[in-house]
């Protein structure tokens, strides 16, 4: 066993939401590690639990209606055991978060300078002057032109791409070793998306922090990630280094997803791959068996495991269930 611990270690995390008296798990037994200097992408469709995973790490759930089990280990601390006061020291200082909607995560009544320096006030003992210098440095780092003027502006005066840069600057303010970015470019145009992704990769090269990048966009994954975890119905179904995942996708879900990306048509009858059925709702999730089985009904039952676990099929490449061995697309020979 390696002696050194990972930067962030998630062990068997379960997050359940309360419906009446029963808790239903939106995240169901997720184990992941994040290393320094790494971008780990978590990819999945809406409702797969990827954002819940992020908010669970940050402790943003209302304890009255959620039940979180498992461990999130950061510097030998289990974050899930912390009280609110201690958690607040971690948030922003050790773990920075970037949300999807930059307008929603900025205060419309505060200038850009106030919002960034607020993060510094809480977590550092810099004086006013030092804070100002740091804000300017941050704005430069995230590529905002004319930072002296921009920092006096309000969020509504900036474009979407600029706002997202400000949000990134806030997340970076205290040089957190861990950054969680939840769909950071989904609301942006492609050209701006490319700039923001470049920026995140550059910052990561500079600071050596670990980034968890949550996205539904496989293109974003291919452009930025070092390692990828694919989530389906609250579980990780496949985990691999990015080159391996795109070259050798194994799990039926990953393969189906890659096949439904719009492409140039080859002939009149060429159609996109459609995944049979729909994502099961939280309440109806089967407790046992392969969760993807109902969506590939042409695969015989024996191909699935009774209690699917992640198997390491090649170094660092893990796949849940055994059904991938027998998987073929409908109407296709094996």
């Amino acid at each position: 066993m390696a002696v050194e611990r990972s930067l962030l270690e998630i062990n068997n995390l379960e997050t359940g939401f309360r419906f009446g008296d029963i808790y239903h798990n939106a995240v169901d037994g997720v184990s992941l590690t994040l290393e320094n200097n790494e971008i780990l992408a978590i990819v999945g469709e809406s409702g797969c639990g990827k954002s819940t995973l992020a908010t669970s790490i940050m402790g943003l759930h209302d304890p009255k209606n959620t039940e979180i089990k498992g461990e999130v280990i950061y510097k030998d601390l289990n974050l899930l055991d912390l009280n609110e006061k201690l958690y607040n020291r971690i948030r922003g200082n050790d773990i920075g978060m970037i949300f999807q909607d930059p307008l929603g995560s900025l205060n419309p009544l505060m200038t850009i300078y106030r919002q960034i320096s607020e993060a510094l006030e809480y977590h550092s003992d810099l004086n006013e002057e030092q804070r100002k210098a740091r804000v300017l440095e941050l704005l430069n780092q995230v590529g905002i032109p004319r930072p002296e003027q921009i920092m006096k502006n309000y969020p509504h005066e900036l474009s979407g791409g600029m706002r997202q840069r400000v949000v990134i600057a806030i997340a970076l303010a205290n040089k957190p070793p861990v950054i969680i970015a939840d769909e950071p470019t989904t609301a942006l145009d492609v050209t701006i998306q490319a700039q923001i992704l470049d920026l995140m990769v550059d910052i990561q090269d500079e600071t050596g922090s670990g980034i968890i990048l949550i996205t539904h966009d496989l293109g974003v994954v291919a452009e930025t990630a070092d390692r990828v975890a694919v989530m389906y119905a609250g579980q990780i179904v496949e985990e691999a280094p990015v080159e391996e995942l795109f070259a050798n996708p194994k799990h039926p879900y990953t393969r189906s997803l890659l096949n439904s990306i719009p492409h140039e048509l080859e002939g009149e009858d060429d159609e996109l791959h459609v995944i049979h059925g729909t994502v099961p709702s939280l309440q109806k999730l089967p407790r046992k068996g392969c969760r993807f089985a109902p969506r590939i009904p042409w695969i015989p039952e024996e191909a699935h495991e009774e209690n699917p676990v992640l198997h390491e099929v090649s170094p660092n490449h893990k796949v849940r269930c055994t059904c991938w061995k027998d998987f073929h697309f409908e109407g296709e020979d094996k």
Binding site: V190, Q193, A194
Partner: peptide, 22 residues
């Protein structure tokens, strides 16, 4: 510019794609 900003689905050509885009 628009076309070069589309994310490339091949992670192995990531670097070249980034250089071209920039």
């Amino acid at each position: 510019r628009l076309l070069s900003a589309i994310p490339d689905m091949d992670p192995t050509t990531r670097k070249a794609h980034k250089v071209e885009r920039q």
